[in-house]
């Protein structure tokens, strides 16, 4: 393992996987608890459409991905807030239409672009120093926001109406949360890919959900599994010469099924129901 770490690209990949592991699994806790799973999938495809347009027009891919990602979550949030349509319908429309846009932009390109397809399937081993700087910069900004607004995000993940009623600016914080989800997806796009980034947000948090009965515990366990999956997936990718995104996500999925199998909640639900005194 030490030999592997002699390579500069491996050092960058290790740093990127730790950062992405922490970032995705921390934001994933709120995604799972608030039932925003589908928003991640839709945003990932929208961000990829942004990247495709950037390549077509020779613009900065990250900038365009941020723009497309944020526009998608904000419009979705507004539509849901106005009660015009349900979240799954709204994001379903964005999911498919932005993917159609991506296909269209790729169709306009004269030649095959390997770098663009890197954003679709992800390649953590090809993270450049510039990519790493972007991942670190945006990633730390998202984590700082999660740290600063942790207690409020916790409250709106559990009960947004109550949070609003008790005087917390719940609406603004909901928009902050969906913006953080979009930024997390964009940050992870190059390393994990648009197809799989959403799994990195969802699976470690869903694994933690199986193993704990407190929100604090869920955050800690989710981050542990997120980092474990991304770092071990990255090493597996190098050692076995397999795609990194797939290795990371399949490892995370394996941890998830192990958690389901050994979940204390599963054991509790098999016990006879105890009548509790009120």
């Amino acid at each position: 393992m030490l030999e592997m770490m002699a390579y500069g690209f491996m050092q960058r990949a290790l740093l990127a996987s730790v950062l992405i592991g922490i970032l995705c699994s921390a934001i994933g806790v709120f995604v799972v608890l608030k039932g925003l799973s589908f928003i991640g999938a839709g945003t990932a495809h929208a961000a990829f459409a942004g990247v495709a347009l950037a390549f077509l027009l020779n613009l900065n891919p990250m900038g365009m991905a941020v723009m497309f990602g944020l526009m998608t979550v904000w419009i979705t949030g507004l539509l849901v807030e106005k009660g015009r349509m349900k979240l799954d319908v709204s994001i379903g429309i964005f999911y498919t239409s932005t993917m159609a846009m991506a296909i269209l932009f790729i169709g306009f390109m004269k030649a095959y672009n390997a770098e663009l397809y890197g954003y679709l399937f992800g390649s953590i081993l090809s993270v450049t120093p510039f990519d790493l700087a972007v991942i670190a910069g945006l990633g730390l900004a998202v984590l700082a926001a999660v740290f600063l607004f942790y207690k409020e995000l916790q409250f709106i993940a559990f009960d947004q109406e109550m949070a609003e009623a008790s005087g917390i600016p719940a609406r603004n914080l909901f928009f902050l949360l969906i913006s953080l989800i979009a930024l997390t997806i964009v940050v992870s796009l190059k390393a994990v890919g648009a197809v799989l980034v959403y799994a990195m947000i969802l699976i470690p948090a869903a694994t933690a959900y199986q193993l704990t009965r407190s929100m604090k515990g869920m955050m800690i366990i989710s981050i542990l599994f997120g980092v474990l999956s991304s770092v071990s997936g990255m090493f597996l990718s190098f050692a076995m010469d397999i795609p990194s995104g797939a290795a990371i996500v399949l490892l995370a999925t394996a941890f998830f099924f192990l958690a389901v199998l050994f979940s204390p909640k599963r054991r509790t639900s098999q016990l006879p129901v105890r009548t509790q005194k009120s």
Binding site: L33, K151, E152, Q154, F155, F158, M162, A163, S166, G167, I168, A208, Y209, T212, R213, S214, M215, K216, G217, M218, K265
Partner: peptide, 16 residues
């Protein structure tokens, strides 16, 4: 299965 203890839920009342 919602991961929230009684104490965590009540403490939320202090947040505002």
């Amino acid at each position: 299965n919602f991961p929230l203890t009684v104490f965590e839920a009540v403490l939320m009342g202090r947040f505002s």
